[in-house]
């Protein structure tokens, strides 16, 4: 897993993507620009974050899930 560590916490790149989603629905391209990650990493990372229930997909865009918000809050404290 590139975005989520074996202990379930987001990695540095996972956290960057979750933070980019805090402001609302974003496309992978917008997340890539905001998080400073290559688009291919964002696309694969979004699959992981969605499968883990930390983000959800609406059409072509993604948003932070309540669980993602909790995990992000916990990892920044």
């Amino acid at each position: 897993m590139a975005c989520i560590s074996p202990d379930g916490k987001p990695t540095e790149s996972g956290s960057k993507m979750l933070r980019a989603l805090q402001a609302g629905l974003k496309s992978p391209e917008e997340i890539s620009n905001e998080a400073g990650l290559p688009l291919f990493r964002v696309r694969s990372g979004l699959r992981e974050l969605t499968e883990a229930g930390l983000a959800s997909q609406k059409g072509d865009r993604y948003e932070l899930s309540p669980k993602g918000g909790e995990v992000l809050g916990a990892s920044s404290t």
Binding site: M1, A2, F40, R41, R43
Partner: peptide, 13 residues
């Protein structure tokens, strides 16, 4: 080494 990747992740590049 950067996680699971699909060819389609590179679409557009």
């Amino acid at each position: 080494t950067h996680g699971k990747l699909k060819l389609e992740d590179f679409k557009g590049s």
